[in-house]
Each structure stands twice: as C-alpha cells, then as structure tokens.
Design a protein around this nucleic acid. Structure first.
Lengths: 202, 202
DNA sequence: CGTCTGCTTGATGAGGCTCAAGATCAGTGG
DNA sequence: CCACTGATCTTGAGCCTCATCAAGCAGACG
C-alpha cells in the first residue's frame, strides 16, 4: 500500500525551479548535527548515515527516494539527526511550502517514512543477487516508461544491502547474464560515479 | 542522539491504567489493513510485518520498543499499514491523548521512528553474534538497574536479524559462554515463549 | 605520462544455512 | 496420573554462499 502524495506537491515544486536544490553524486546535503532544513526528494536518491562512535564511525541508516522527506526532524529539534549524502544526481525541493507543516502533512511523511524503512530493511535479507535486484528496482526513475535505473556506486550499494562491493559487482554481472539488466554507458573512472541501466524485468 | 519524550506522556498514561492495553507474546495487535488505533509502547516490544504478496507472504518490516508509536498512519489513512504482533508481554497506551495530535507531536514521532528504523537496519549487518548482542541490548527493560532483558522467541529474533533461528540459538549460547549473558529461567515449552536474561556487559 | 579512483574477476576459506535428531515443557485426553 | 501431541529450543554434520585478499583494467585528471 503505497502512499500517494497530493498531486499538487510535485508540480508545485517543479514550477518553482529557483527553489530546487541539486546535489551531485557523493555530495553531502548536511552533516549529522547541522542546523539544516527539510527537503523533499524530487529525483535521484539520498542515503542517510548515523554517526555512532566518537571515532566518527558512521553506518548506513536509511534511504530516501523521490517523494520522501529528508531532515524533517530538524523542524522539531533544530538540527539534523543523520548525515545525508546524494547517491545519484538528486533534485530537492524545500519542505514544507508553508512555514509550519500541517498535522496531516507530517502524518503523511511519517507513513511514507515507515514504508521506506520497511523496504530498506528488506534489502538486507535474502540472497545477494536478490538484494541487488530489489535495490535496482528501487532506483528506477519514476515515470521512465522504459524502466531506466540510475545506480549508485558499488560501495554505496554494498552499504545499503550489507554486502561487499565485490559481491554487488558480481551480482550485477549475474543479473546482466540472466538478461534482467542491460547496462547503458560506462561506470569506471575517477571521482564519484553513477551508472545507468535498463531494467528488462521487474 | 535519542529523542526524549515529554516527561508527562509516560506518567500520564500510567496514571490511567484503565486505558492500558496488554498484549501477550505472539498476540496480534492489529492486522495490516485493519481499521486500527495508534498506540504508544509502554513496555515490551512489537514487531511490524508488511504483507507483500497476495499469497499472504509477510516479512519483517520494523520494531517498536518502549516510547515508540505503533499505527500512527491509521490516523491519516484510516487503516493500518502493517501487522503488529507482540514479541514479549507488551503494555500499550492510546495515542495521542487528545483527539488530534499536534504537529510537534507528530514530528517527534517521526524523529523517533527514523531513529528506530536506523537501529533496526543496523541489526542486519555484521557477524551473527554481534547482531544478536545488539538485539539483546535493545530488549533490555528501561529502568531495570540490573539490565534485565526479556527476549522474544528465537524465530522472532531470527526474522529481525535476518539470520536463522539455529544461528540465533548458537549466538546466544556463545554470548553466554563469553560471560556476557546470564539466562534466567527456562525458555522451552509449548506456546509462544519469552525468556529472560541478565546482560552482564553492554 | 603517472596517479588516483572505481570496477572486474579470480582463488580461497570461513561463517552461516540446511537438514537432522534429540531434549524440554505445556496442554490434552484418556 | 500418564502417555501423547505440539511447540520451542539445542546441538551436530556437511555444504554453499559470500567475505577476504589479490591482481589487473578503465577512465579522469594533473
């Protein structure tokens, strides 16, 4: 049971391009503890990390894809709980439009957040190939009729699925071998990279 | 950074014992799709499951421990998204006290939910013994000075940690062998069981 | 060009899954 | 009162998936 955002929200944000914030892959939207703002993911994907130890050790804490809200807790606490990093090229719109969100709006975000958390938890169970497949399906661009998925780096996918990046690489090759995935373009090279692929079967 | 609930909330609920609802281990608070209410966990623990397929296949979707809210989405959607089942003997108080929750209250629940989701996600990474140890630490009764933990059944712990119940059993034995855990009472027998153990070192 | 970063692939071993047998305890019915 | 059933937990043996270590490749950048 997916939560459908009111149809005005996306269109409204897109009609105010000046307020759209863009994050490149690997770019940090805000650190944990920052006095940040809340954003709605318009396109792309964001990973959240919690800083546990004093030794700056961080661990994957959550995923945000189009429609999700990032940093809503800063409206209450004044600071962000997690570090937010862009997994792919990501567009963000400020949230909420008004100064104070309405209760039903926050409830909606809460419902969506629980749904996303459930999916994220599910990404860490089962065989490696299945986990990667489910993650790739999550990364499919909404509205792309031909099911184009923009994939994060192997390390990010490994953190999300609780696998190693070698296993993720092998899983992607396996999916390709099975004819479920068709890569588009290259992924190698220096700097934070994302790759694209066509999902041939969900 | 833990979210501390306002100190009135717990005391308020406990001072209205007539409204406290109790769930035995294994008991279902509400099914997915039910027209349920929202509850705050006072003591014990709740597991959430999402029903994915039409074949009634369900998968672990989340955890709620004292202080967390279960079923808040029903205030918006009218029905519950997940099935909620008690892992141990659980006390629940209706939420919110008033008819309509205030925005800051929902934001607080949202922040707490994100925190819990991050912890739950972390329970599915790392070596088996560490996962089980972290789960046991989560199950420690708040306020119990001697760190008494009430553990769910092996199957529930296996679902939560994405291990098998055999591996969970072996991990608990290993923790006991290392002197980190001291069991209290028996766990075998018919029906839904919970066991108690003393956590000797966090 | 060298370096750096990220991706691919191989070899090897260990950790956890699977299957299996037995133990323990609570109900149930005779 | 006791055998039986049903449910959970424990432990063992063997195998398989995946982590680990390693080497090499491809592209970006100075």
């Amino acid at each position: 049971m997916e939560i459908s955002l009111p149809k005005t929200s996306n269109a409204e944000a897109i009609s105010r391009p000046a307020e759209i914030h863009t994050c490149a892959p690997g770019e940090c939207l805000h650190e944990a503890g920052d006095c940040g703002l809340a954003w709605r993911v318009v396109s792309g994907a964001i990973r959240l990390d919690s800083i546990e130890d004093e030794a700056q050790a961080s661990s994957f804490a959550g995923l945000a894809i189009p429609g999700d809200i990032v940093g809503a807790e800063s409206l209450l606490l004044g600071r962000c709980t997690f570090r937010a990093t862009a997994l792919t090229l990501t567009e963000l719109a400020p949230w909420p439009g008004e100064v104070q969100p309405q209760p039903w709006q926050v409830l909606q975000v809460l419902a969506q957040t629980e749904q996303r958390a459930a999916k994220t938890i599910a990404l860490r169970a089962g065989q490696a190939v299945d986990r990667v497949r489910r993650l790739v399906n999550l990364m499919v661009q909404p509205g792309s009729g031909n099911l184009l998925a923009v994939l994060p780096s192997l390390r990010d996918m490994a953190d999300i699925t609780a696998l190693t990046f070698e296993t993720v690489s092998r899983s992607l090759s396996e999916l390709q071998r099975r004819g479920l995935l068709e890569p588009e373009g290259q992924r190698r090279g220096r700097g934070k990279k994302t790759s694209r692929c066509h999902v041939l079967a969900r």
